[in-house]
Design a protein around this nucleic acid. Structure first.
Lengths: 76, 76
DNA sequence: CTGCATTTGTACGTATGTATA
DNA sequence: ATATACATACGTACAAATGCA
């Protein structure tokens, strides 16, 4: 295993923090993969991998051609 | 969706067939990723992706530095 | 235990496909 | 058809574990 966390995991953690901070409330559209790629200096695929982790945790919902939106928190 | 199935899915299907055929009985070591990559004309990562699908289905069990072994079929 | 080869497993980028407007 | 954006596939590079001498 890598001694340092992967970039896409780091980015996913950053976005997760913003969601929990309220900086990205439910219903908000996340920056596009191209935007995230540019902001973090990675490729679009890597940016998408970060978002994909959140999608796997049901924190966001992506719609092709539309964008990725923050989902409502599941309390229970 | 791709009109044609992905290579790694095709390879996974081939290996799955061999396991079901008895060509690769439980306990047998699968060809290494390098071997599979050479046989199917793909990269080691793609070969591993095929094996990874079987691993996801609990059909095989990989041990780093050792190899990937066919698991016992779960009947029940 | 150390150095080398082999092998599993992960990470990132490029290319491509698919969906919406 | 063009522009934008999500989503997948494959290869190269790298990391970690194991076995042998």
């Amino acid at each position: 295993m890598p001694s340092a966390p992967a970039e896409y995991r780091r980015i996913a953690d950053e976005i997760t923090a913003k969601i929990k901070n309220g900086e990205l409330p439910p219903g908000t559209k996340l920056p596009s993969t191209s935007e995230l790629a540019d902001q973090y200096g990675v490729s679009t695929a890597t940016a998408y991998r970060a978002v994909s982790l959140l999608h796997d945790r049901d924190m966001v919902m992506g719609q092709p051609g539309r964008g990725v939106y923050v989902a409502e928190p599941e309390n229970g």
